[in-house]
Design a protein around this nucleic acid. Structure first.
Length: 882
RNA sequence: GGGAGCAUAGCUCAGUUGGUUUAGAGCAUCUGCCUUACAAGCAGAGGGUCGGGGGUUCGACUCCCUCUGCUCCCACCA
């Protein structure tokens, strides 16, 4: 069969993915083997694959495939997250396009639309992951709003409520006027924004000629002011003590109060206090018993309490108020001012601090064990630098606002009675039972459930538990089922550092609370995928390639390699398509190596050439030592190093050296010994490559030998080191290799065709058994000792380590040039020798340095001395000849 | 404002408790090759004194101080 010179991935990938699925190779059930478990960070159910997912899931797949090939029972659990805010926003937007307003729908009607949307778009991203080759156990696919997972969330709420950690209270929360919900502190992004600082006069009420000047960035909230505040130590304002001022435009009277919070240096040293719309003002208000006037509605528009500009959006109102203040004579000036403005992560709306009634979970106690697990390395963060950040956060946790004013999610299991009290229970029937203990006449209809849903993270923090067993959360008596006790704690979690607190820390808390154990042992934190200019990839910048197009163009294996090559843990990835091209090129290289080997005919009568015999021995040693290196890299989660080691082993050592050495001459067959050794080596190389490049390795492995249906490289055992590594042979080979490179170098610089045979003479240490390799690889006709050389021959000399080589090149040599070359080498070595001598003659060095270091220096000294001697002798010969 | 991290060839990065022939890799570059697996290739080569300055040490890319530049996290100065 004719095989194309170019690897074409498309059909091959589809074929093998189907084969793996049909054979259920991804599926795992508890058995007697050691488990290896990863739970996927569930992507948003309506999300589409972006480069971050590509990186993250490639890494997970590499880890899972490798564990599987190391004989572990590997289980990678996939699934999606319901993502309250993001999904609800998408559904609202979609309805809007159809002319339907969310407010015109009942909760039930809206949820029907939402589920419809979820069924239609949900899981697209999981299908995309399949294109990447992800070996997830799809039979275990979960969704955070599956009925049983939702029930686990409810149970968790009840559990913490009973424990006394959940409470309801009025607090200043981060209000998202677009998302129409409270968001947690972690969902708020501070961005430096150019805004303005406005200086405004507030006249004293009993003396219209006197006024104070305040500086504010939010003039539209002056109608909500309930005081003016100065620092008690500020002598400028002592005369105003106890006086009252009038709010401009609406002329409401408010007191001047004193509080040390005020910074005398900033602005005018005079601060307007707006308890309803600023967290600090709110706290000052509590201290001074000030009223709270909330002039904004949930959409960020002025309400009737504002008295003026009712119904106007807060930002439009700002400009209008400024104009009005100018007209009324209260406006003094405005200056440019840079400040940190809070934005909602989900909707990018400017966050409005808002007082509202919310549910909270106490965090302090939960954080303690969760911190301990990480600090004592029960859970390892990779890279370690995140330990600091983690500790800082855990030592400063605040209570978690877990209620969201949304419909899409798990509704809070609290039922209100007519008298305003409430009952927390797992379901309405339980709630009714409890209610009946107070009032036996009460009916279901009289119970109203809290309309809010729980924060998405309140479900995803259970993920590593609830994908295996939904009984445990909130149910202390339930015994963990077989899956949970087998797969949990999971092994590795691969995720982005930005959700270390959102998600990772909380999973650790939940794991401790419900399973009394860590949820995972290692957390590998990937970097952010950026473009080559260092900008974060985003839709709005349009700088993100479509992952599926990339896969189509370069193959999944190529894309995986491209992503991994530049991804050390915790470092951001500067993505450049050229990396994917490199991955594609590598696929092609592997493909062609296979084409070469496959094209060979075995000649049963052929003897094994000496160089082939040596090459097999050498490569097997090298392969083993590489396996050790790769193992070490994986242990340290240095995946790109592991890949690079494999890459070079295949491309440089196997293709450029091994295959070239054993390659039979044109038209000849290959001896059976070398051939079978080569197949064995190829097999091992494919297995080493498989976790990184699953498709091409499966394709080639399946063709390498007769396979039966149900065979697969993905369930084969990865190669292990069985015999001792011959390090002497490796070193000997390197010397030979160095000599060959030098000879090729001479050819290039002297313009000698590779087809022209040369002779080689040497003096010094060399492994004679490897000489045949030189004959073949450097096209040498004769190798002999230097002492047997006719003295008058001219040629080119070089050293490899301390072995001297000479290539006779009668008439092709510029003797002056050769001498100059040798002179410069001697100078270099002499300088080097001097620096060693300086060290060795330093008494402090001799007395302080460890013996190995001194021995090494002595070895360096003797080596360079003998090199210099050799070179000097060569130079002498040359001088005689000129 | 507080905290953390980074700064090594054109680019992306290694360099594991300071000593391994006076700093490594991949890509890119340059030179020569369509050599019967691969031009998505082959062969060869060049390129950095480790951000600047100071210090500790027999010895520093590696430790300390300082300056410069960048990144990230946290934070309620209007």
């Amino acid at each position: 069969m004719e095989i194309s010179a170019k690897y074409t991935p498309a059909q091959i990938e589809a074929k093998w993915y189907k084969y793996w699925l049909d054979n259920r190779f991804f599926h795992s059930e508890p058995n007697e083997k050691e488990p290896y478990t990863i739970v996927i960070p569930p992507p948003n159910v309506t999300g589409v694959l972006h480069m971050g997912h590509m990186l993250n899931n490639t890494i997970q797949d590499v880890l899972v495939r490798r564990a599987r090939m190391k004989g572990k029972n590997a289980c990678w659990v996939p699934g999606t997250d319901h993502a309250s805010i993001a999904t609800e926003a998408k559904v609202v937007e979609k309805l809007k396009k159809e002319g339907i307003d969310k407010s015109s729908l009942t909760r039930e009607e809206f949820l029907e639309h939402a589920w419809e949307w979820k069924e239609k778009h949900g899981g697209i991203i999981l299908e995309q992951l399949k294109k990447l080759g992800a070996s997830c156990d799809w039979e275990r696919t979960k969704f955070t709003m599956d009925p049983d997972l939702s029930q686990a969330v409810i149970n968790t709420f009840v559990h913490y409520y009973k424990k006394g950690w959940i409470y309801r209270g009025i607090r200043m929360v981060n209000w998202d006027p677009i998302g129409q919900t409270a968001v947690s502190d972690e969902e708020v992004i501070h961005k430096e924004t150019q805004s303005k600082l406005y200086y405004i006069k507030y006249y004293v009420s009993d003396n219209k000629s006197e006024y104070v000047t305040i500086a504010t960035t939010r003039p539209e909230t002056i109608m909500a002011d309930t005081a003016i505040c100065v620092n008690p130590a500020d002598s400028r304002y002592h005369s105003l003590k106890g006086k009252k001022v009038l709010i401009p435009l609406i002329n409401r009277e408010i007191p001047i109060i004193e509080d040390e919070y005020v910074d005398m240096e900033f602005g005018t040293g005079c601060l307007k206090i707006t308890p309803a719309h600023d967290i600090n003002d709110y706290e000052i208000g509590i201290r001074h018993n000030l009223p709270v006037i909330d002039i904004l509605d949930d959409f960020g528009k002025l309400n009737s309490k504002a008295e003026i500009l009712i119904g106007e959006d807060r930002f439009i109102a700002r400009d209008k108020i400024v104009e009005m203040l100018k007209e009324s004579g209260n406006f003094i000036k405005e200056e440019g001012y840079k400040s940190q403005v809070s934005y909602s992560e989900r909707t990018n709306a400017v966050i409005e601090p808002k007082l509202s009634l919310q549910w909270f979970l106490k965090m302090k106690e939960a954080a303690e064990p969760a911190l301990e697990y990480v600090m004592n390395d029960t859970i390892k963060l990779i890279p370690e630098k995140y330990k600091n950040t983690y500790r800082h956060w855990m030592e400063n946790v605040k209570d978690w606002c877990i209620s969201r004013q949304l419909w899409w999610g798990q509704q809070i299991p609290a039922w209100y009675l007519a008298d305003g009290t409430y009952i927390v229970a797992s379901n309405i029937d339980e709630a009714l039972e409890i209610a009946k203990t107070k009032d036996s006449n009460i009916t279901k209809e009289q119970l109203t459930q809290d309309p809010d849903v729980l924060d998405t993270w309140f479900s995803s923090w259970l993920w590593p538990i609830s994908v295996f067993d939904t009984n445990v959360p909130g149910n202390k008596d339930a015994k963990p089922n077989r899956d949970l006790s087998y797969y949990y704690p999971t092994n590795d979690l691969v995720t982005a550092p930005e959700i270390l607190f959102f998600w990772v820390a909380r999973m650790i808390m939940a794991g401790h609370e419900f399973c009394n154990d860590v949820p995972f042992k290692n957390v590998y934190l990937t970097g952010i995928v950026r473009d080559k200019l260092g900008r974060k990839m985003s839709k709005s910048l349009g700088n993100s390639p479509d992952p599926l197009n990339l896969i189509e163009e370069f193959g999944a294996d190529g894309v995986r390699v491209g992503m991994l090559l530049c991804s050390s843990a915790g470092n951001d990835i500067l993505f450049d398509q050229s990396q994917v091209e490199q991955g594609r090129n590598f696929s092609n290289k592997i493909w062609n190596a296979y084409r070469l080997v496959r094209g060979w005919q075995v000649d049963a009568n052929a003897e094994q050439p000496a160089e082939s015999k040596e090459a097999v021995k050498w490569f097997e040693s090298l392969l083993n030592s590489s396996i050790n290196t790769i193992e070490d890299h994986f242990d340290k989660f240095r995946l790109s190093d592991a890949l690079m080691t494999t890459y070079k082993l295949f491309w440089d050592d196997f293709c450029a050296w091994y295959l070239e050495i054993i390659k039979p001459s044109f038209g000849k067959g290959i001896d059976s010994n070398t051939y079978s050794s080569t197949l064995r080596i190829f097999d091992k190389l494919l297995k080493l490559l498989h976790p990184f490049m699953p498709f091409i390795t499966e394709e080639l492995w399946s063709n390498l030998e007769e396979r039966r249906d149900g065979d697969s490289i993905m369930i084969a055992n990865s190669p292990t080191v069985e015999e001792e590594i011959d390090t002497v042979l490796l070193a000997d080979f390197n010397l030979i290799r160095g000599a060959i490179v030098e000879i090729r170098n001479i050819r290039q610089s002297k313009n000698i065709s590779p087809k022209e045979e040369l002779e080689l003479y040497y003096k010094g240490q060399i492994n004679i058994a490897l000489l045949p390799v030189i004959y073949k690889m450097a096209n040498i006709s004769k190798i002999d000792l230097l002492e047997n050389l006719e003295k008058e021959e001219s040629g080119s000399s070089f050293l490899v380590n301390t072995t001297e080589f000479f290539v006779p090149l009668a008439g092709m040599i510029d003797i002056e040039q050769e001498i100059a070359k040798i002179d410069s080498e001697i100078t270099h070595l002499t300088n080097f020798l001097n620096s060693i001598d300086k060290k060795l003659s330093n008494e402090k060095f001799i007395s302080n340095a460890p013996k190995q270091v001194i021995d090494l220096e002595l070895k360096k000294k003797s080596d360079s001395e003998s090199k210099i001697a050799n070179l000097s002798q060569i130079k002498e010969e040359l001088l005689k000849k000129r």
